[in-house]
């Protein structure tokens, strides 16, 4: 049976009011947590593979202890196992350090045929971690993958490129980053949530399905992760300043008058819109 690993991440929910300060900054301690939306597409692809050709699916996440929630969600969608890599020394990992740590988890799992990641995260937003895991593991990669067909040990995929698409083919093992233009997310879960709850009720079964591991467990060198192992740091942050400054606003009059005043104002400022119109 194929072994599939899918990397999923827990991110702050910026669409919720909780934990989002008025100035737009996020208070991670108070913010609601959610599964990175891009990773749902990767998870769905993994389950599609499982349904079509049979596979053992393990979801892997790296984060603080609450991140275990996304693994439960992964199991609810039909994954078989979940692994949480959690370790204080991982804090402040940049993409290089994250990919280093995550590739060690693949080694810990053993022989793997297909690795799936989301295209990007909504908090890191780099789209780098997937390809960097592939580099560490010396695997071919298919990024921006929309659709995938598995025959034996070969993967055929369609990927997005600027202004079109590309059909590619490669033998396993490989890494795939799944585009958010892939199959729309289905709402039906592979197995019933209640069933998963039941399954995870006994401590033995829960321990068998979901593991929490440390850097030492996966044989990672702590000096290559976290703050010390990251080649980049965030130097300074600042608020985006207002642009344009004074907006000339027309309101409270008849629409005709407002439009006329807008056009007069543009002309007075030598903003020549007429030039942009069809003659």
């Amino acid at each position: 049976m194929l072994k599939v690993v899918v990397f999923i991440k827990q991110v702050p929910d910026t669409s919720s009011k909780a934990g989002v300060n008025p100035d737009g900054t996020i208070d991670r301690a108070r913010a609601k947590r959610m599964l990175n939306n891009f990773d749902r597409y990767a998870l769905q692809k993994a389950i599609e593979i499982k349904r079509s050709v049979g596979a053992e699916v393990t979801c892997v996440t790296m984060g603080p202890p609450p991140a275990i929630e996304v693994l439960v969600e992964g199991l609810e969608h039909g994954a078989d196992y979940g692994i949480l890599l959690t370790d204080k020394r991982l804090a402040a990992s940049d993409t290089l350090a994250t990919a280093y740590a995550l590739h060690k988890v693949v080694g810990y799992i053993g022989q793997v045929d297909i690795i799936l990641t989301g295209l990007q995260t909504t908090d890191g937003d780099t789209a780098q971690v997937g390809p960097q895991i592939a580099e560490r593991l010396d695997l071919p990669q298919i990024s921006y993958c929309e659709s995938l067909t598995i025959t034996g040990k070969t993967a055929k995929a369609r990927r997005v490129v600027e202004g079109g698409f590309q059909n590619v083919e490669t033998a396993m093992p490989l890494l795939i980053t799944v585009a958010n233009s892939a199959t729309p997310l289905g709402h039906k879960r592979f197995i019933e949530v209640a069933q998963v709850k039941e399954m995870l009720r006994t401590p033995e079964e829960r321990a068998r399905r979901i593991k929490s591991v440390s850097l030492d467990d996966v044989g990672a060198d702590a000096a290559r992760t976290g703050l010390v192992g990251s080649p980049t740091v965030v130097g300074k942050t600042w608020k985006l300043g207002e642009v344009g400054g004074s907006c000339k606003v027309f309101e409270g009059e008849a629409v005709e008058t407002e439009v006329a005043r807008l056009l007069e104002s543009l002309a007075a400022d030598s903003r020549n819109i007429a030039e942009m119109l069809h003659g």
Partner: peptide, 18 residues
């Protein structure tokens, strides 16, 4: 789509930041 495919691999190979 090309840069985001290639740059992370080069950076990881060189072990530099990106």
């Amino acid at each position: 789509t090309i840069g985001r495919d290639l740059a992370p691999r080069v950076a990881a190979s060189l072990e530099v930041g990106l």
